[in-house]
Design a protein around this nucleic acid. Structure first.
Lengths: 235, 235
DNA sequence: CGCGCGATTGATTCGGCTCAATAACTGTGG
DNA sequence: CCACAGTTATTGAGCCGAATCAATCGCGCG
């Protein structure tokens, strides 16, 4: 079978093709394939936890994941999301520190684990891969800094608009314009760094203005342009 | 002369020893030395600007620099600081994008410029260097994420305490416990993401509680423990 | 010594947080 | 398929931190 959810084969993995691993030599892909370990994570299960020591890298074969740090009084702040083709836990692994964020599945997800030694052996040999990795880090750094500014300066409504745009970018919308990810109001609040009630009111505001439609946790994007305007679109 | 402010020699540069370049081969250091260009930047002068295309990497031989992004209504948000041994502009250079932040000298600074091609030739050849670079990126990413949480969740007073701790870490204190960097109240506000007046009041509060002393722009750290307590120290 | 920007203080306003009370939803077991 | 229990979402009221606006103040510098 060409795309096994339970035990994918790296050599032909579609998610690998769109990932930082896309330029691997065949032999390297095979190496990873033999050394890797795959697992299924149900919605809500934790993949790794802040503070723990990393032993390898997680590759999302299929699924959606949120990464979050615990902040003041344990309040969770979502740092970023990831999905098919994304990798998790590389920051701690490479810098040799413990995890500074936790990862949790948002959907039923199939996630592979590549041992540290395997990854490093490839990093050492394959310079294109290292560079690719570096570029991904750079992009993550840029978006973290961008979000720092947004969180620092925007109102709740602006931050919500920005967040919805990020979610559109990350997870896309279905053909009927629904955001293709189910988050609780609390998750949204934890992205923006605000209270759940404030998100609810801001969402109601966007709905009143015809920018989104709501049905439970499903959010329909009616007017993306307006969202960009509302978010005080920066760079 | 062993440490020329105007035109330092990479082979014996003290700042290089403490930088990501510390493990360079002698030949590589010499290569950089011949290809680099040095410049002096006065307090307030801009080293590079958000939106522009990078052509190389800046190395701080001596001095202090702030990196900031322009946010909502042009309000500046300081994303990080750097000093002797630090490098600037690597994010945009490596990811091949334009600068997403501007850099400005906070002091009279001596800063070298390494052309893109030179840097990449070393990145391709020297794997230890690449890895080192990656580790630095990872740390920057981690602190950006940490600051994201702080900004999202902390009050002005807590954020100020945190900011002062970051400044102590970054620039250290003089033997009489003064923060060894001069920032305007507005700069402090632009780190925390708040209004100048709020910083002033929060500083006055810390002073009233005997945690800091103020004389103009000079800030004396009286009680670092208390600052950690005040900042709701996280991880 | 006077100018001008940055710092400070006060008054007022407002966004957003908190707390509390429902309402709506989800999954479960009968 | 329905009732129940436990979440999660929503709404309202009241309060508070922080932004804004408007004067000074005072230091650093020419």
């Amino acid at each position: 079978m060409s795309e096994n959810f339970i035990n994918p084969n790296c050599s032909i993995c579609k998610s690998r093709m769109i990932s930082v691993f896309n330029k691997l030599e065949d032999s390297e892909a095979e190496l990873i394939d033999t050394e890797k370990n795959c697992g299924i994570f149900k919605r809500g299960s934790v993949i790794f936890e802040e503070g723990k020591q990393p032993n390898g890298l997680y590759c999302i074969h299929h699924g959606k994941v949120k990464l979050y740090r615990s902040g003041k009084d344990g309040k969770e702040q979502i740092v970023r999301f990831s999905k098919n083709g994304g990798i998790l836990g590389y920051r701690a692994l490479i810098s040799g520190e413990s995890y500074t964020a936790s990862a949790e599945a948002l959907d039923l997800s199939s996630i592979c684990f590549i041992p540290k030694a395997t990854l490093f052996s490839i990093l050492k040999k394959n310079n294109d891969f290292s560079l690719k990795m570096m570029q991904m880090l750079c992009q993550d750094l840029s978006s973290a800094e961008k979000r720092m500014v947004n969180i620092a300066q925007k109102s709740v409504r602006e931050g919500l608009a920005e967040t919805l745009l990020i979610l559109i970018e990350t997870f896309e919308t279905t053909e009927d314009d629904f955001l293709d990810v189910k988050l609780s109001r609390e998750d949204l609040a934890n992205m923006i760094g605000t209270a759940t009630e404030s998100v609810i009111r801001a969402l109601a505001g966007l709905k009143k203005d015809g920018i989104v439609e709501l049905s439970g946790r499903k959010i329909k994007i009616i007017n993306k342009q307006a969202l960009m305007r509302e978010s005080q679109f920066m760079d």
